[in-house]
Simulated scan of single mutants.
Amino acid sequence: MSTPSRLKGPLILLLSLVLLCAGVAVLVGVFGLLVKLLGLG
């Protein structure tokens, strides 16, 4: 039961977009934590 090649493109695009958003969220969270720890915020 493999996905049709017609759907594979948008699926990979959506997955990479979700991963990108998750990565950005993690980076922003870590940066905010660092700022708090350093007492700049």
Rank of each mutant, 00 (worst) to 15 (best):
24 V>E: 11
33 L>Y: 12
27 L>T: 13
30 V>G: 13
3 T>Y: 08
26 V>F: 14
10 P>A: 04
18 V>G: 00
24 V>G: 05
4 P>Q: 08
28 V>T: 13
3 T>N: 03
17 L>S: 11
17 L>Y: 11
5 S>H: 07
20 L>S: 11
40 L>P: 00
29 G>S: 09
18 V>K: 01
37 L>F: 03
34 L>A: 06
17 L>T: 13
4 P>A: 04
17 L>K: 03
21 C>S: 15
26 V>A: 14
33 L>Q: 11
30 V>H: 12
15 L>Y: 09
7 L>N: 08
36 K>F: 10
39 G>A: 00
29 G>D: 12
36 K>E: 05
18 V>W: 01
4 P>D: 10
21 C>Y: 14
12 I>D: 07
3 T>S: 03
21 C>Q: 15
37 L>W: 03
14 L>M: 09
16 S>G: 07
21 C>R: 15
23 G>M: 02
10 P>D: 05
38 L>T: 04
3 T>A: 06
40 L>K: 00
30 V>P: 06
20 L>W: 07
6 R>S: 11
6 R>W: 12
2 S>G: 03
40 L>Y: 02
29 G>P: 03
29 G>I: 02
36 K>G: 03
4 P>T: 10
25 A>Y: 08
16 S>H: 10
10 P>C: 03
28 V>A: 15
18 V>H: 02
2 S>K: 05
19 L>K: 05
13 L>S: 12
26 V>L: 13
15 L>D: 06
12 I>C: 06
28 V>C: 09
41 G>Y: 00
25 A>Q: 13
9 G>H: 03
31 F>E: 11
25 A>N: 10
26 V>D: 04
27 L>M: 15
33 L>I: 08
6 R>D: 10
13 L>R: 10
18 V>S: 01
5 S>N: 09
10 P>Y: 02
21 C>F: 14
4 P>E: 07
6 R>M: 08
13 L>T: 14
3 T>H: 02
34 L>H: 01
2 S>Q: 02
13 L>I: 14
